[in-house]
């Protein structure tokens, strides 16, 4: 199994997801919300790596292939040395959470900018796992 490359991203964006909530609104405008679960899911993580070498690009794609694309779920085992590099808060801030894992939300996108040098963008979404 190819490990997720341990290089710092150039850019990172994160959205926190939400709990499974059903919302009912009456004609008077009063709202009732029902919580259907105890797991936060749907958080999204986008990572950009600029001007990296071809070998590292291939490692990202190899990881994607080993997850069978957007099918498999996985956890980033060493957040602080992979996707969380440069984050000075808690190391597990980007962890998906209990019984929740990330999967790819789409294929990696690579743009070659010169021989041997490329930019790559990765997008993940967190989903509950049984």
């Amino acid at each position: 199994m190819t490990a997720f490359p341990t290089i710092a991203p150039t850019s990172r964006s994160f959205e926190g997801g939400d709990w499974p909530i059903k919302r009912f609104v009456s004609q008077s405008g009063s709202e009732v919300r029902i919580l259907y679960g105890d797991r936060r899911t749907g958080h999204t993580l986008s990572l950009g790596y600029q001007n990296i070498d071809d070998e590292t690009v291939e490692q990202f794609f190899q990881h994607y292939y080993e997850q069978k694309g957007t099918y498999g779920t996985f956890a980033f085992n060493t957040i602080e040395s992979t996707v969380g590099q440069g984050w000075e808060g808690e190391a597990d801030f980007f962890n998906a959470g209990a019984a929740v894992q990330y999967r790819y939300s789409g294929p990696p996108s690579v743009q070659q900018v010169r021989p041997g040098i490329s930019n790559i963008t990765l997008n993940f979404v967190a989903v509950g796992v049984s």
């Binding site: 710092a8 850019s11 984050w87 010169r114 040098i117």
Partner: peptide
């Protein structure tokens, strides 16, 4: 020159 600065730099 192509920038290789990352989030931890």
């Amino acid at each position: 020159v192509l920038e290789t600065t990352t989030l931890s730099d």
